[in-house]
Structure formats: structure tokens, C-alpha cells
Design a protein around this nucleic acid. Structure first.
Lengths: 251, 251
DNA sequence: CCAAAAGTGTTCATTCTACACCCATGG
DNA sequence: CCATGGGTGTAGAATGAACACTTTTGG
């Protein structure tokens, strides 16, 4: 920012270099609000879910929205995103990644607020308790049943889903949605839910196992009315090694 | 932004819902500056280049930096990015895409400024004139020779390059860097420059041609001291059709 | 013994890789 | 006629898709 040495500027507005540098802070340029909005994906009973809140204040009171908040002037935006999810779920250091910035002038009725989308993946069974215990305004909504959301949150959700689908095909990102120990069929069902496709069981497991990213545990499912499946866990260490070598996971 | 109904907030700071909604605009939350920074890739003589400016004002005066500017309070951020490149190159509607948001508290010495990175691809031969004629502060720098940049611009550049490499492998994005008519060997050299790899000539052309994204012109290179190559152009229409059908280009 | 889902093996088609070879032009 | 890079064909390897089959559990 403020890097240009010359510039054409919109009529009636002076460039930031028309005034001494140290006055910039008090300038009309510093009037933006900054927020983050979180698209939290969960997975339960073969369905993709998303964490929504019911707004209890204007604007858009009573409408569904993504959890989000304004960023404090002395707060990094990544930290703000973590803070919001900590408030909702009680968990720190959740996997989170930026999606996009939304900078339309009129996107917030209260003033100029630009927001950054984040998406996150969590295992509902493990992390849900705090969220559902917290206020009456937080719910896991089936992705297929999400109504129109407040602000431009429908767009933010749409973009986040697309990015998730893209990620999941090229990086083993989906594991955060599963319990630590899982069967290959669970993983397959997860991929099918996210990508809206179906895969051949034999070929799916061959592909996944050939990547050597799963550690076969010496443990099986219990109390299932059929042959119990072998459980696996994700080998994070091996993944990091492969990534460091420029490996790209392709589904 | 301002979506939560309850929240724990940093000590000593009140949530935006502790005050009536309509007062938010005058709140301490609205003190951010917002900027955009552009990573403009060009391509010339088998080398990837990037457009840099030499800063003529504090802070970081005299250092190399990405072209960027503060966003006006009434300006969409995408529009701001286009404006900056229009100033530099005289071209409107350049291909541009967001990379990431940079929201570290201390990233700008003049105050709290968050910035959004954009990358853009342009054909130097076609679009350069304005840039090089414009002031003495704008240069095409070989990507391998870029020094440490002002602010966190080195990070922004690094991320943008990574995103470009990712894009180029999955979408035919690189064409913007070439003249409208090009030979297959030019395209191959471009991919090799961006991805730092080399490909078998025969296999590369088979792969590219099998996608049916190139239109073979009835025209060859001229004045080359060897068999002149057939020229092609990118079939944008066909590309849009394929994308609409969920096609994904894989290199 | 049956149902249900886990888990494996095989075949055939397709794609990828490496490499050899021919072609057209300027000098 | 040579050097240079354009352009093509092919054999063998590797991968992928489809599908049949075996295994292990609970009821």
C-alpha cells in the first residue's frame, strides 16, 4: 500500500503522497472496518454440515449468518479468526485457511467493512459440545439445507465450498473432518459427500493406500453387524515430508 | 463482520454489540486502512519477469516494492487493483485474481493497514510501453533477480508465485503472457519457465493439442533459420464451454 | 446359513514416457 | 548440404476402470 510514486486518483481525492507520510494515519483513508467470517465445515452421518448462527441484532436480525466479527485494531486477522472459532467451539489452533476477501463498497449497511473469509474443518463428534451448549444461536446446518444468509454470506459460503472441493482433490485436507481413527469406507464416504461423486471401493482404497499417507492401526471396528473394518490414522509426518519434496496429492 | 450474538472479547475492549448498531461506524473499529498490492507477471525471452517500482517516498524510500495503493473509502477493492494497473500500463480490464490478505498488525509502519494481494499476467511486448515510459520508477525485473522488497512484499510475491504455479497447472492461465499468436514451443518454454521443469517436446504437444483449446492458424513463423513453426491461438470460447461442464485442465 | 459390508485380484483399455526419426528453412 | 529446431510415430510401461470374487462378522 502506499507504494506508488505517481498515480491518477479519482476526481476530488488526493493521493496518499500529497501529504507527508506521517499524516496518513489521520487521513480519510483510515476509515475502514475489517472483519472475518468463518465457514466451518463439519461432517456427521455422511453429510457435510456447516456452522451457522442466528443473528440476534441488526442488521439482518433473525437471519442466518456465518460466525464472524470485527477485527480489533491491535489484532492480527488470523488471530481474530481463531478467536471467533474458540468462542464457538472452545478449541484453539483449529485448522483454518483464508478463502477470499470481500471488498464491495455496499456489502455492509453500517459502513465500509471489508471482510476475509476463512474456512475450517472440524470433527463434529469431537468438537461440537461447546458450540451447541453455547447460546441458543449456533447450529450445525446440513449443507443442502442452508437458506439465504445475511450480508453476502451466501457468496462467501459458495466460494468456500468451491475452495474446499478444490483443496480436497489435491491435498489430503479432509482428515480433519474425521475422528482420529477411521475406516477406509468412512474416508470414501467423506470424499463422496464433499465432491458429490462416487468411487469404486476397490480402486479408491488402492489409490489411497498407495500414497502411504495412512497408518494401519492394529485395531478394528467393534459391534458392527458385518465384518469389522480395519482402522487407520493419518500420517501427518509423512505428509509433511512429501509436501516438502513437492509432492502433490491428486484424487 | 458484526455477526456474533455473544462473544468473549479482548480485555478492555467492548464488543460491537455493546453499543447500538448504528453507532458502529463511529467506533474505534473503523480505523483501518485498506490497500491492494499487485504482483504483475510478464514473460520475455523465456524469462518470467515481475513489475516492480522503486519507492520515492517514506517509508522504505529507495527500496523496491510491488505496485500498490490505498483503497478509497468509496472504491471496491477489485476496482482499486484495476486502477493501479491501469495507471502503470494504460490497460483496463486486465486479468487479475486475488491471492491472499495480509493482516499482521505491524506490517505497515504508518498504522494499521491490511492489504490484499492480486496477481496479474500480461504480455510484455504488447502492454509494456506505458509502464516503461511512465516515470523512472517502474521496471520489469527478472524473477530470479528480485531483491528483498519493502513492507512484506517479498512474502506477497512468494505467495503469488506459488498460486500462479498452482493455477497454471490446472487451468490454462498462462496464455495471457504470450502474444495472441504463438508457437507450441513458446508455450512449452513458458510452462517450463513458470514451473521450473522441462517436458518432452512430443508429449507436451500431444497433451496440449488433445485438449482442443488451441486453434491452429494457417500461418507460420517468419524469418527463422529453421523450419518455421505453426502458429496457434487460444480458444477462449471452447475453454469457457469446458469449464462450464466442470472440466479441469491438468498439466 | 444369511445378510452385509470389508477387502482382494484380474482383465482390459487408456494414458504416459522415452526415444527415434523425418521435415522445412536459412545460410 | 549442414545446422537448427519443428513435427510425428511407436513400443513398452504404468495407470485406471470395471467387476467378480473371497472374507469376516452379527443375527
Amino acid at each position: 500500500m502506499a507504494e506508488k510514486t505517481t498515480s491518477t486518483v479519482p476526481k476530488g481525492q488526493k493521493s496518499q503522497f500529497a501529504v507527508p507520510y506521517y499524516e496518513i494515519s489521520y487521513d480519510k483513508f483510515f476509515q475502514f472496518g475489517v472483519s472475518v467470517d468463518c465457514v466451518v465445515f463439519g461432517y456427521h452421518e455422511n453429510r457435510l454440515k456447516i456452522l451457522l448462527i442466528k443473528r440476534g441484532a441488526a442488521p439482518f436480525m433473525g437471519m442466518w449468518a456465518l460466525p464472524g466479527d470485527l477485527v480489533y485494531p491491535n489484532e492480527n486477522i488470523d488471530v481474530a479468526a481463531q478467536r471467533i472459532l474458540r468462542d464457538l467451539t472452545g478449541i484453539d489452533n483449529l485448522f483454518m485457511e483464508q478463502t477470499k476477501v470481500y471488498g464491495q463498497v455496499d456489502r455492509h449497511p453500517a459502513g465500509r467493512v471489508i471482510t476475509t473469509g476463512y474456512y475450517s474443518l472440524i470433527d463434529i463428534a469431537k468438537h461440537d459440545p461447546h458450540a451447541s451448549a453455547w447460546a441458543d444461536g449456533v447450529y450445525w446446518m446440513d449443507l443442502n439445507e442452508v437458506p439465504k444468509l445475511a450480508f453476502d454470506h451466501s457468496d462467501i459460503l459458495k466460494d468456500a465450498l468451491q475452495i474446499l472441493q478444490q483443496r480436497v482433490r489435491h491435498q489430503p485436507v479432509g482428515f480433519e473432518l474425521l475422528p482420529e481413527k477411521f475406516a477406509l469406507a468412512d474416508l470414501q464416504a467423506l470424499y463422496e459427500a464433499i465432491l458429490n461423486e462416487s468411487y469404486d471401493k476397490a480402486n479408491f482404497r488402492k489409490r489411497i493406500l498407495s500414497m502411504n499417507l495412512l497408518i494401519s492401526l492394529k485395531e478394528n471396528q467393534k459391534d458392527v453387524p458385518h465384518r469389522p473394518a480395519r482402522l487407520y490414522k493419518f500420517d501427518k509426518q509423512r505428509y509433511d515430508e512429501l509436501i516438502a519434496k513437492g509432492f502433490s496429492f491428486e484424487l
